[in-house]
Amino acid sequence: MVRVETPAAALRGADRFRVAQAATLELRGVAKNFGGLRAVDGVSLTIEADEVLGIAGPNGAGKTTLFDVVTGLTKASEGDVVLDGSSIAGDSVHRRCQRGMARTFQQPTVAASLTVYENVALGCSFGQPRRHWAGVDDLKEFAEFVLELTGLADKAELVAGPLTVFDKKRLMLASAIATGPRVLLLDEPFGGLNPDEIDETLRLIRRVREFGVAIVCIEHVMRALVQLATRVAVMHHGAVFFEGAPQEMMQDERVISVYLGRSAAKPPARGGDGGAA
């Protein structure tokens, strides 16, 4: 059994997690075409280490595709992705992860046949910038810290496949944290969760932020976004048409009209805004 025996271990793990060198992520005119469809249409954004950038926009706006391009899952048609001043556009997905970029997926995606602990250990063993883990103990220490942080410590030995959506989403986040990211990209972390779970996820993301991790967060749920983000970008038809503080966004005419004239404070139910796409 994995037991989180001592808070001391978790503390040492926490030391490891603290980001030593803050990262800057820059997107320069990123575009992605699927055949005739321009899913991402020239997006330029800069994410600094001390901020949480929220990305909003109706379904089909190209948010997930933007993440796919940034993390290397699909190749950009145009533009450049720059991490700490050097381009990572030519790097593979796993290289980008090792350079300090981790993401979660919109669908709760984990390694279903691995246990919770193994999922986290996977991130620790393979996602670190350099394989600087002195040994299994060191890995274990950090893994336990991550499990503790995400509230999964008592589920460490369970197989991930049958977990609930909330646990899967937390695990997906945990294994991302386990890679020791400097930039964390979250694709709808609150989607499909109930209010309590949303609050807990909010707390968790704030904790992660305290370690100096830059965060980009796609979200439909405006309430969460407004509470979390320091800056917001709103996408429509693949392009960012609004960038600013969360409070400004709520008043912006264009944002409100993109959400079909409904109140921005009460965004449309997920999946029900097909007309906006």
Binding site: V93, L122, A176
Partner: peptide, 24 residues
């Protein structure tokens, strides 16, 4: 082993494994 961990993760979901630093 950790090689097995990597392989099983890739089998379960290739994008997930790769996004956690495993070279497929």
């Amino acid at each position: 082993s950790s090689l097995g961990l990597a392989l099983r993760a890739l089998r379960d979901s290739l994008p997930y494994g790769a996004a956690r630093g495993v070279s497929p």
